[in-house]
Design a protein around this nucleic acid. Sequence first.
DNA 1: ATAGCCATGTAACCAGTTACATGATTTC
DNA 2: GAAATCATGTAACTGGTTACATGGCTAT
Lengths: 171, 171
Amino acid sequence: MAELNPTAASLLGFLHGGPASGYDLVGIAEAVIGDFWSLTRSQVYRELADLASRGLIRAQPAGPRAKRPYELTDAGREAFAAWIAEPPGPEQIRYPLLLALSFGSLIDRDRLLGYVGTHRVIHERRLAAYRDVKAAGGRDQYVRATIAFGIRYEEAVLAWIADLPSILTAE
Amino acid sequence: MAELNPTAASLLGFLHGGPASGYDLVGIAEAVIGDFWSLTRSQVYRELADLASRGLIRAQPAGPRAKRPYELTDAGREAFAAWIAEPPGPEQIRYPLLLALSFGSLIDRDRLLGYVGTHRVIHERRLAAYRDVKAAGGRDQYVRATIAFGIRYEEAVLAWIADLPSILTAE
DNA sequence: ATAGCCATGTAACCAGTTACATGATTTC
DNA sequence: GAAATCATGTAACTGGTTACATGGCTAT
């Protein structure tokens, strides 16, 4: 039995909450893990087709608008359990702003600072949004834990941006 | 003229420092941008072949061990300038530990805490390594700025991990 | 009835990873 | 002359993105 990739595994994870269609799953995934695990519609449909062909999920009779909910099978539950029993790998960060910054000596200084300013606004908004979610309370403790990560992360980025002038004007 | 992808663009960026072979570039990239922009050998050789076919770089006569250094062409310099003049996109984070945590209700609690502990050690080591680099000083201000990011980031992750028990024992 | 959104999916491409394969040079 | 390592690259696959295409349902 081939291994699950994390994206497929997360679909199985969400199906523990009951049957859902591809469309539903895209929405759930964006809301719950979208901040640190991106996925696209195409990918979801492809993985669902693959999971179904491997017997890990089963299509239910189509509902209105050809909505095709999938349900977990016992094999799917087992495959998820096997996946989650493996230690999670290291995180991957790809940050184009840092890439641009690495080549700071080849960029016009004002342009570079403009990029940083744009990102500062983005991170301020995200931090505010996370704080709103946190203040609203609710959700399960695990989702709250991921939001706590988001808050720490955004705070760190903003602190770093605040530090930048003193790093970049030196010399 | 098709756009450059960030990986190809970074190769052009490094070639501003003088001719370098694929092997050299892998080493430089890992050292300078590896913490927030991963790339593999295969990718580098493929991008170099592509850049050469587009006239953005030019192979120099091979040295010992078939070492084939490439140099920037004027067109390459222009292409890099055009790339860097575009605002950098949003960062992408893919963090399997957060994914596992999202499904915390489906995991044995001790196992989950074990995963977190493993990552705490990893982040502690990385933070220490960044601080060593910082203390050693030197390098250009832009590289120092990316290291400052790394320090802020690792500190944030560790602070979050320290918070976790209070988030997860509630309820 | 028609406009807008819901919901599905396919196709083509591009980027990233892993595994394989080879030969030259240096060091002992 | 053997072992280690430097340096190159190819092949095959997997995963991720973008663009395209279609039709059903709902609200007005």
